[in-house]
């Protein structure tokens, strides 16, 4: 018996969210008293996984794989390692691969899980429902369980071990999917990876005013985001739209500038730990959901904030 975790990399390096997923999988393997097997994809140094509790590292080096090839590879390893739980992060790859593995292993899959199982028999997890407006305790009834971990819900926990490392050849599968091009948002921080997200709403009045958001994001090393109408009007790209029907945000700090805080917006950003709101309207609903609020004009407050933050950063560098 074992717990299997998918340790994906970006340019050879494990992202923070991957280390969180591995830490989480370790906690499950401790609960079950079984070994943690980490499947490492294209890492330059897979021994890093030993710091987070992997007992076995299965090293896969391969040119870019599509979701079906990832799923076939992970499924084969899960079978060989007799895995009863397979853990993936709810990022773009995890989201498309997890259900494919679940189908192959005839396993129940729960995405958006926010904590270690509250019970292992029956196996019960807590997951986000209704776009974060509620949580659901869900039992997985099948023998094998597939779990998707919501980002920033467990944290990174170091648990040094010594792991055995074996190489594994990616499993062949019939597929017609062929990647023709990849377009990375170079130089920009992705919302999904960001610790801090700075977001602008319709109150900023026009596209050019988003330089305020970009400047604030730059001092903070943050990703930029926006409300739905802002991307609908083409002031910002669709990929920056956050909320119930846009990207989910689970950052450490979310700063909302000139965003009213409609229920659909809040549903997607509420999982962030600390929320700051800057809005001219003291009645804006967002203040009810925020931790810190400033009633004021963004065009005055934000430049001041940028200036003071620069001074703060210079002092604390």
């Amino acid at each position: 018996m074992s717990v299997l975790v998918f340790a994906d990399t970006s340019e050879g390096i494990y992202k923070k969210s991957t280390l969180e997923t591995v830490s989480y999988a370790k906690a499950i393997s401790d609960l079950l008293g079984s070994e943690l097997v980490a499947v490492s994809m294209n890492a330059t140094d897979n021994t890093a996984l030993q710091n987070y509790g992997a007992n076995q590292i299965v090293n896969v080096q391969s040119a870019s794989l599509n979701n079906k090839q990832y799923a076939a590879t992970l499924t084969q390893i899960a079978k060989e390692k007799n895995s009863t739980v397979v853990v993936l992060g709810n990022n773009a790859i995890g989201n498309s691969v997890a259900p494919l593995i679940a189908a192959q292993l005839k396993a129940g899959y729960t995405s958006n899980v926010v904590a270690v199982p509250i019970n292992t028999a029956p196996f019960t997890v807590v997951r986000k429902n209704f776009s974060g407006k509620a949580f659901g305790q869900t039992q997985i009834l099948s023998e094998v369980k597939v779990i998707g971990l919501a980002k920033n819900s467990f944290g990174i926990v170091e648990k040094p071990t010594t792991a055995t490392v074996t190489d594994f050849q990616a499993t062949e599968t019939n597929t017609t999917l062929a990647s023709v091009s990849v377009d990375k948002n170079s130089g920009k921080i992705a919302i999904a990876d960001a610790d801090i997200v700075v977001s602008g709403g319709r109150g900023l009045k026009e596209a050019s005013n988003f330089s305020l958001i970009e400047d604030l994001a730059e001092v903070l090393g943050a990703a930029t985001a926006c409300s739905k109408p802002v991307s609908d009007m083409g002031w910002r790209p669709h990929s920056e739209h956050v909320g119930q029907t846009g990207k989910p945000v689970a950052a450490n700090l979310y700063i909302a500038v000139a965003i009213s805080g409609a229920i659909q917006h809040l549903a997607g950003v509420n999982a962030s730990k600390t929320k700051v709101v800057i809005n001219t309207d003291p009645e804006a609903p967002f203040f009810k959901a925020a931790d810190y609020g400033i009633v004021g004009d963004a065009f005055e407050v934000v430049p001041k904030l940028i200036e003071k933050l620069k001074a703060f950063k210079a002092e604390n560098a």
Binding site: K106, A107, G108, Y109, T110, T124, V126, N129, G132, K133, A134, F135, G136, Q137, T138, Q139, I140, L141, S142, N270, V277, F287, K288, A289, A290, D291, Y292, G293, I294, V295
Partner: peptide, 20 residues
């Protein structure tokens, strides 16, 4: 079905916003 929802919870009420 291979999963079953047992029970729901609502997120904890958060503390009031600090105004600055």
């Amino acid at each position: 079905a291979v999963t079953e929802i047992e029970r729901f919870e609502k997120p904890a009420q958060k503390a009031a916003c600090k105004m600055i």
